[in-house]
């Protein structure tokens, strides 16, 4: 249990680093990816990628917002995925 403060300190340090870094702008790698690519990469991590014709545009707005939070997507990724999913409607 004596190692616990060390583990917590390391975890906190990583956490703070990530938080500070996240305040910066988006990334060129993410910018270069299309909505279809992000849809495949992010959805498939947990489940099958949803068919774009499953929901209406307004339903996709809500569903993608839900998944943006659930899957920790950035705003840029969510906007692109949403745009791709709406192309079927």
């Amino acid at each position: 249990m004596k190692k616990i403060p060390i583990i917590i300190s390391i975890f906190t340090f990583i956490a703070v680093t990530v938080i500070i870094s996240s305040c910066s702008s988006t990334n060129s790698l993410a910018d270069a990816k299309s909505g279809a690519q992000l849809w495949g990469e992010n959805c498939l991590r947990c489940h099958n990628a949803p068919s774009p014709d499953t929901f209406s545009d307004t339903e996709w707005d809500v569903a993608v917002m839900h998944m943006r939070i659930r899957a920790n997507l950035t705003e840029n990724e969510a906007v692109k995925i949403s745009g791709f999913l709406k192309t079927a409607n």
Binding site: V18, I19, S21, A30, N72, T74
Partner: peptide
């Protein structure tokens, strides 16, 4: 508090 971001070209996500 949760979200996702990039450290250079390394994507990270976080929840505290």
């Amino acid at each position: 508090l949760r979200g996702g971001s990039y450290l250079g070209n390394l994507k990270v996500n976080y929840s505290f």
